[in-house]
C-alpha cells in the first residue's frame, strides 16, 4: 500500500494538471522508488491514480528501459555498451563487474544491493568506459575505480535519486 503522504502528494499534482496523463512517467518513477521496482501492485496504483487501465500503464512501462517491472537492487549499475565504451571495454568493464559481484548481466546480487544492466550509450563518452548508477555518471572505468566505487556505495545509506 502506498503511504498516505506519497499518495496525497501525487493526487495533488494530478489534480493540478490540465493533462494528468502527462504525469504518468513521474508517477511510475515515484512508485518504483517506493516499492523498489514497478511491481503489479504499484502498476495498478499508477493506473488508479491516473484513471488509466493497468494495460495502458503496462503499454508504457514495457516501452521504457528505466521502468523496472522486475525486482532490482538498491543500486542499478547501467553499464554502457555504446560504441565508444565498447572500444575501450575490451576486457570489458561489464565482465569485470559481473565477476566481481558474482552475477550475470541482468541479475541482482543476493544481498539485494546491486543489479547489473547493460545499457545504451549513457552520454558520458568523453569519460569512456562509463556507467550510470542511480542517476549519477561514473567513468572512465578501470578495475580500481570500479572496486572503489562499489565499496563506497555499499557503505552509503542515503536515499536513491529519482532515476536508477
Amino acid at each position: 500500500m502506498l503511504p498516505e503522504e506519497i499518495r496525497h502528494r501525487l493526487e495533488t499534482r494530478i489534480a493540478a494538471s490540465a493533462h494528468p496523463r502527462e504525469l504518468v512517467v513521474d508517477v511510475m518513477y515515484e512508485l518504483q522508488n517506493h516499492y523498489g521496482f514497478l511491481n503489479d501492485v504499484a502498476l495498478r496504483e499508477v493506473a488508479e491514480l491516473l484513471q488509466l487501465t493497468p494495460l495502458e500503464v503496462e503499454e508504457l512501462a514495457t516501452f521504457y528501459d528505466f521502468i523496472y517491472r522486475r525486482p532490482v537492487g538498491r543500486f542499478v549499475l547501467h553499464v554502457c555498451d555504446g560504441v565508444v565504451c565498447w572500444m575501450f571495454e575490451e576486457q570489458s568493464a561489464l565482465d569485470y563487474i559481473c565477476k566481481l559481484l558474482g552475477v550475470a548481466p541482468g541479475e541482482t546480487t543476493p544481498d539485494g544491493q546491486f543489479t547489473v544492466l547493460p545499457t545504451v550509450c549513457v552520454g558520458y563518452c568523453d569519460h569512456a568506459p562509463a556507467m550510470l548508477i542511480n542517476g549519477k555518471l561514473y567513468g572512465p572505468l578501470t578495475p580500481e575505480f570500479i572496486d572503489r566505487t562499489l565499496e563506497e556505495l555499499r557503505s552509503i545509506s542515503c536515499d536513491l535519486v529519482l532515476c536508477r
Binding site: H19, R21, E22, L23, V24, V25, M28, Y29, L50, L60, F63, Y64, D65, F66, I67, V120, C163
Partner: peptide, 19 residues
C-alpha cells in the same frame, strides 16, 4: 523521460510528454 533513443525524435517526444 524514462529512456529510449526514439524519444529524441520530435513527434515521438511530443507523444512521450503526453503520456
Amino acid at each position: 523521460s524514462a529512456g529510449r533513443y526514439i524519444c529524441g525524435e520530435a513527434s515521438a517526444q511530443v507523444r512521450a510528454i503526453q503520456g
